[in-house]
Design a protein around this nucleic acid. Sequence first.
DNA 1: ACTGAAATCTTTGAAAG
DNA 2: CTTTCAAAGATTTCAGT
Lengths: 153, 153
Amino acid sequence: MTVRLDETDRKILLQLQQDAAQSLDDIARKVGSSKTPVWNRIRKMKEAGIIGAQVALLDAESLGFDACFFVLIRTSEHEADWQAAFLKALKDRPEVQEAHRLAGDIDYILKVRVRNARAYDAFYQALISEVKVHNVTALLSMEQIKSTTALPL
Amino acid sequence: MTVRLDETDRKILLQLQQDAAQSLDDIARKVGSSKTPVWNRIRKMKEAGIIGAQVALLDAESLGFDACFFVLIRTSEHEADWQAAFLKALKDRPEVQEAHRLAGDIDYILKVRVRNARAYDAFYQALISEVKVHNVTALLSMEQIKSTTALPL
DNA sequence: ACTGAAATCTTTGAAAG
DNA sequence: CTTTCAAAGATTTCAGT
């Protein structure tokens, strides 16, 4: 599953993760190539799973999503059953934008995007009623300083 | 800058944040309308800033970005000068994918995507040499359980 | 692998119900 | 506000280098 990427591939990826709506012609010009080779490279990288979904990023604030929480979770349960239930709960809840299992003291971190603090509380109550967690700390974002989906290629 | 959205607008946004590469025809069919009205609604929502960039999401692992850290930062400095320098440092570093200013005890949280632990250390050393921070805790992700850019519309 | 061009499909905007 | 239609433009495929 490892594909060797050259400089041109990398330039194409840089363009696509910046603006995937631009035309092949524009990308080809910017990376110093032409349509067909660029198209073939993109196709290969899609097949290899390097390029995933193409999505529109929406503005959270103008849609009324004013609250963003980072949730630090400690649990005493580490059995397979518990973990499966916890994972399912996270995947099923659309307000959970990110979830990571961590090394060390804290077991999980979530990024939760909701309309307001009340909606967070509803989420939190629903979560702890579904799965037992030992300790939960919520960090409230006051200001999103930076947000990018781009990898530092 | 507040635009009233109806059910159709919401359905269009759901489609676009899931797959922005599909054709207008497909979106129109899925939301129960036809091309031109859908196109006009998308144009208006772009003008209103509700719909932002359209990007390709790349697979971090297949590109060799195996390490993801959440960094909790406490600082004793809260002056405008310090804050401006800190913000600039974060915006300039491509490995910082997210940065939030927090309410409470911890002042900032960062999401940092790097190739490996050594690259994180390099980032960390560069950051603390640029700006003074009081206390830094790094949480290492072992496993990304969920990741979406979609808002829970 | 790249080029150029043909066929197909999409987007865009005008006109009209 | 929606539908239809036509021109402009983009994507995709293919033969030739």
